[in-house]
Design a protein around this nucleic acid. Structure first.
Lengths: 225, 225
DNA sequence: TAGATTGTTAATCGATTAACAATC
DNA sequence: TAGATTGTTAATCGATTAACAATC
């Protein structure tokens, strides 16, 4: 685990490059990144493992341990430089690039997602929004009406032309499976599902279903006990 | 771990009642519940641990192990009865009751949440929606315009009158901390944060921040490697 | 220097998995 | 009966934590 390369932003990845991160480490690193991004917006230059722990509910020792596996990123007595740590984690997660998203459904949820910078902050860009409702097609959506709602029939063409890697489903539950099928046919391998549908997809496709109510149940259990 | 009470819906909880569930078990049980709820809607009467595994990405042995800690809920060669398992898990999680939610922010996201049945399916009811924008106050929101947007100044009064246990923040990031402070003052202990703000709250208050982009980063890592 | 915080070790704990007898 | 699937064991693996020397 020793690591003697200077921490000055060299381009190579630290040890561990060749092996896949474990699920847990990858998930935690993503969360650190989220907090760091916000901390930076709040004008913080450095952050301690204890502060990161307060926001992520991950033990501070665990955080230092996760990070030290890839290099000595901190300064004893001071903490971690926010900018430097962001770029290190991005490198470790190999998500420094820009990735294009297509959004399905131009209802309240679709508009909320299109207008948010929650994806943009992490290098994702919503480059297309689709709906099957003719009344909605052509409508401007997102900040400054940057996007125009496209007809659903353009899916395949747009996925190819815009190099879409993620499909986000903000459609009614009954419509979700069909969109998933069409996305898979178009070659998309990551689907983010905001509907309640249980999606059936081939094994090489990743589905992430957002379940706020599940998270609430979980929080409530610890509140009630 | 032996358990000889009939599985016929007796009211007592199985073994483990007195001890708190571990974080992991509680989280997984919540996810099983989500899948079971959807499976029921799809008309399934029984479900196998393997089917649950396919939808939750939890190993099927792990699922049987989680469940068998509380009783023998399954039938060998058949699987689990969906209805019975739902009520058993609800009992284990002690979330059989109804819990009231207040929603903050009547923008696209607030309206999307108010109009969804994602919370209702799990015994949560959105009973109030607030906004500070005078133009929005009084507007009907949710299915059949069931809710009218209330002025933010009514927060304390409504939390008391409606026995609100969860506050859901669908407000701009810059407004989130103030709402959190006011909710804490009103006695709410669970906050669900859809903004990007890092919220500062007392230790006895649970904050869950929804981070779709973080989940995407994570999915993308496994896609890219 | 004095205080703070990292990096790292060592020990513990819980999660995960394969395997398979029991039994529907 | 034959096939399927649970409940459970036993072994392994990774996560978690306390403690503390190193050092900024």
């Amino acid at each position: 685990m020793s690591y003697d390369r200077p921490m000055d932003g060299g381009l190579e990845l630290a040890e561990g490059t060749s092996e896949r991160l474990s699920l847990g480490v990858a998930a935690r690193l993503s969360r650190y990144l989220q907090v760091l991004t916000q901390a930076k917006k709040m004008g913080k230059d450095t952050i301690s493992s204890q502060e990161l722990a307060d926001y992520t509910h991950v033990n501070s020792t665990q955080i230092r341990r996760d990070l030290s596996g890839f290099g000595k990123f901190g300064k004893r007595g001071v903490g971690y430089n926010v900018d430097a740590l962001v770029s290190q984690i991005r490198k470790i997660l190999r998500t420094s690039g820009k990735h294009n998203i297509a959004l399905f459904g131009a209802g309240h949820l679709g508009k909320a997602i299109a207008g948010s910078d929650i994806f943009a902050d992490h290098g994702f860009e919503v480059v297309a929004i689709f709906d099957t409702d003719k009344a909605k097609i052509g409508q401007p959506v997102g900040e400054n009406g940057r996007l125009k709602v496209r007809p659903y029939s353009d899916l395949q063409r747009v996925v190819d032309a815009e190099e879409i890697v993620v499909g986000v489903l903000a459609v009614p539950t009954h419509a979700a499976q069909q969109v998933a099928v069409d996305l898979v046919d178009a070659g998309v391998k990551i689907i983010f599902n905001y509907s309640e549908a249980l999606l059936q997809v081939p094994p090489d496709v990743t589905v992430h279903t957002s379940s706020p109510a599940v998270d609430l149940l979980y929080a409530l259990y610890f509140y009630l006990t």
